[in-house]
């Protein structure tokens, strides 16, 4: 009973925060509210016993991405431009998508249902055998790091690639060439002259 009251209050706060994000024109406020949204999400994940996910959501969603958004705001303006055209079509698209998703949830198994398909594929093996096969008390860690080690390697590669991408886009801020580059250009010029 108490748990469902807490759930309802948290979800209500989530909806209020989301509506405030949509209504607000001040982007500084939007960034702060999206941090709050992530923090509320982290609390909800904790209530769903997904502590590892909650941890990540709190650290990344509420912490680091807020800082990065603020960094972006300091480079741009913190006031959203007024819309130039009507927003009927986007509203319809959002409503239809939302209605489809809500309709789809009716086909999902109930939360915690032991007969749900997800509890019958590899989950029994992880729960029964990981203690003897991997020997790590936290099953989440043994799934992520050992059974699905390949996937986690892929995830780290994605993070690495994201970092490289940011370095490529934002890293080139020197307009004048470095002395080393100048020398190389001169050498290439020399070669071109030799060829001529």
């Amino acid at each position: 009973m108490l748990v469902s009251v807490v759930d309802i209050i948290l979800l209500a706060f989530l909806v209020v925060t989301a509506l405030a994000i949509v209504r607000l024109r001040n982007l500084f406020g939007v960034v702060m509210l999206s941090g709050i949204y992530s923090l509320l999400m982290a609390v909800i994940f904790t209530l769903l016993d997904a502590v590892d996910v909650a941890f990540t959501e709190a650290a990344v969603g509420a912490g680091v991405s807020t800082v990065l958004m603020l960094g972006t705001l300091s480079l741009t303006t913190n006031q959203e431009k007024a819309p130039t055209h009507t927003r009927i079509l986007p509203l319809i698209v959002a409503l239809v998508t939302g209605a489809t998703l809500i309709y789809a949830t009716t086909g999902m198994p109930r939360l915690g249902d032991p007969n749900a398909p997800i509890h019958h594929h590899v989950a029994p093996r992880y729960i029964n055998e990981s203690g003897t096969e991997v020997g790590v008390p936290n099953i989440v860690t043994s799934v992520l790091a050992s059974y699905r080690g390949y996937d986690t390697l892929g995830e780290v590669t994605v993070i690495f690639t994201a970092g490289i991408g940011v370095m490529m886009v934002l890293g080139r801020r020197r307009a004048k060439p470095k002395p080393g580059e100048k020398r190389r250009e001169a050498a290439e010029d020399g070669k071109a002259e030799d060829a001529a």
């Binding site: 590892d52 909650a54 941890f55 790590v136 936290n138 989440v140 860690t141 992520l144």
Partner: peptide
Amino acid sequence: HGDFGPGG
């Protein structure tokens, strides 16, 4: 401590 509790 990620092997024993949440985290990693």
